[in-house]
Each structure stands twice: as C-alpha cells, then as structure tokens.
Design a protein around this nucleic acid. Structure first.
Lengths: 193, 193
DNA sequence: ATAGTAATCGGAACAGGATTCCGTTTATCC
DNA sequence: GGATAAACGGAATCCTGTTCCGATTACTAT
C-alpha cells in the first residue's frame, strides 16, 4: 500500500527518487568489492553525489545495508515454510534452510561481522534480521523437535547468532569452511541417543 | 635465553623498562573496563605517559595485547597435554580444554572479535594464538580420533577459528551462551553412529 | 510560461581516533 | 661531572564519520 499516491506522504521529488536508486546500485557495487564497511565517501563518489545525500536517504549505515539486501533476506525468510512443506524430515529442512542463510552471509563481504557488532548504529540491522529470520528458524526448530529429531531446548535466537558468528571471516579463505562448521553445529543438536 | 645480559642486545634503559611494566599494567586495567579496543590515548593517560611511548614499546596494538595475555595463553597451551594425561577419555579431555579456551576468551572483553579481525595490524596476534594453540588442539583431536570417539577429518585450525568465532559478543549478554553453542559444536564432531 | 517555494543537493566544516614527528629530557658511560 | 644517545611527551598529521549551510532544482499555482 501507499505506493502510487497515498494521502499523508507528499510523494518524493523525482531527483530524490533517482538518487536513492543510484545510491542503492552504487552501494551494492562497492559492498561487493570493499565490503559493507566501505567508507561513506567511496559510495558517494561511486554514485556521483555528495556525502550528505547518503545520510539524507539512509540515516545510518544499517539502513543502507538493509535496503541493499532486503530482497534476499525476504527470500530466505520465505524459503523456511516452503522447505518445511517440501522436505519429508523437518531436520533435513532445517539443515537446508541454515545452508541458505550461510550461503547468503558468506557471499556478502563483512556482513556477518557487522551483523553481530554491538555498535548502536547497527541496531536497526540487528532488529531487521532478527525479526525476519528468528521466527522462521523457531518454526523449523519446533517441527524438528516435535518429530523427535533434535533436542527441544534449542533457542532460535541463540542458534541464529551462533551460525552468524561462524560465518564471520569466511569469505575467500580456503582454510576456513563456515558451511562445514555450521554442519557440525547442527549435527550437535541431535537428540543425545 | 638473552634475559640478563646477552651479547648483541645492549640492555634497555631503566626508565624504559619501568614504562613497559607500567604500560602493561595500565593496558590490562583498561582492557578489563573498556575492552581490548580501548583508545590508545586512554591507555597512555592511565599509565601517565605520552602516546608515542606506547608505540615505541608496542608497535601495533596486537603486540600489546599479546604481551598482556601471554601468561594466560601459555597456561592454556600447557593445559592440553596435562588434560590428555589426566583424563581417561581423549574426547572428554578435548571438551575440557575447549572449555578453558572459551572461558579465557569470553572473559576478555572484545578479544575474540579482534582475534578474528582480518585487519593487517592484528596479524601478529593471529599468528601467536594460532602457533601456540593450534598444535595443542591438533594433538587432542588426533588422540580422540585415534580412540574412535570423533571423526578423523576435523582440522584443528578450522575448529579453533570456529570456537573463537562462537565466542564473539558473548560477554555480558545473558541471551547468548557461547559455552552452550561450543558444546553443541563439539558434540557434532562425534563419529556418525 | 513563469515566478515562488520548499525540498534536495554538494562539498566544506567539524569531531574523534590512530599514527608520526621533533625538540626536550634523562639514564648511562667514561 | 660532562658527553652521548636512548627515551620521552605532546603537538601535528591523517583518515573516517557526521553535520551544516548556501546554492540548486523540481514542483505548484497562477
């Protein structure tokens, strides 16, 4: 809703809309090469705008990161119920879903690191990821526990944070395979016996 | 060797030795309250010296952190073989040793985070921790694998990095229990079947 | 079409931290 | 006690992030 006209929102100016799009593209490109903590000035330069324009559109870096990756996070969130419906074993569905999440994180240079940062500026990023993905994870955990495949005392938030942490620094380092370690962690959730 | 006199090293001046000690104490105190990434100026102020004095004694922050925690890291390294000798099951010894490591990390505010940082300035810190602890971990892993208690394809470096990552952000957050997650990870190493 | 208006813009100014430089101090040796 | 070079402190520099302000430009009403 509130996309074409709206009542209260006075519709943004055309140049502002254009700049927002340009900034998203520039940020995405810079994130790929320099990571999500690239200097603000670099992103502004790449977009051909002044630094203040970034702050006007995205008050904190978290807002910019969220905007850049929103689609992929949504896709990941929606994949949870789909996997649960499509795969026979809830435990297998959980494993598959976690792999999707891990793949997403390790391909976004530095994202896992800022995701766990306790810097106040990243509060919105924290909140978004957690609000969107923790419930999905909790649903998968409940299903697997109900099926007796894993222990029932696993907290979704804790697991998500653990998996996120395991993904830190996993980009382009052949000696560290986050996927493998996460698989061990998930294996460790199985019922003892 | 080369502690009291030596041949090539011209023995440091007395005030320099005193400052180095003072700096170590000041850094240790500041690390406890503000974490290992505390501003250099704070440490200098606490020690009552100029900032350049820090750089003269410890060229990078990594050197300072290593010096502050060297004793505890050595103790952890030496605990490995001791546990292996004292505990009947190598797998149990591994678990106990990992717990020592985790306890060390989570009580040093922010240490786990810089430990995994790929910032060039922390290269020495990386190298020291890895050189000192990975061989110990490898020995424990070999013993447990030889006893048939865990799979034999676990790399010590990878495991250490995984455990270190799980400890990031674990200080004073009741909703995140790094010890518990590490326990799951170690449990996941058991032989399948 | 045009003048008025307010949203938006760009880059300079400011702030905070790390790192380096240099004139001064001081321990050591003779 | 004086010469010498190591060590010192703090100012200067550099690099980011963030805010401010005069200039610009899209929209609106006539």
């Amino acid at each position: 809703m509130n996309d074409g006209d709206g009542g209260a929102a006075p519709r943004k100016r055309a140049d502002a809309q254009r700049n927002e799009r340009t900034l998203l593209d520039a940020a995405a490109a810079v994130f790929v090469t320099s990571g999500v903590e690239a200097p603000v000035r670099d992103i502004a330069a790449r977009a051909g705008v002044g630094v203040a324009t970034i702050y006007r559109h995205f008050p904190t870096r978290a807002d910019l990161i969220i905007a850049v990756y929103r689609h992929q996070v949504e896709a990941c969130a929606e994949a949870g119920p789909a996997l649960l419906a499509a795969v026979a074993s809830p435990y297998a569905a959980l494993g598959r879903w976690i792999n999707l999440f891990v793949d997403f994180l390790v391909t976004k240079h530095g994202l896992a690191a800022v995701l766990r940062s306790d810097d106040a500026g990243f509060h919105a990023l924290h909140a978004y990821f957690l609000d969107r993905l923790v419930p999905v994870c909790a649903q998968l955990l409940r299903a697997a526990a109900a099926a007796g495949e894993i222990r029932s005392d696993v907290d979704a938030l804790e697991l998500m944070r653990g998996v996120g942490n395991l993904c830190i620094g996993a980009e382009n380092d052949p000696r560290y395979d986050a996927r493998r370690l996460v698989a061990f962690l998930i294996a460790g959730l199985r019922q003892p016996g």
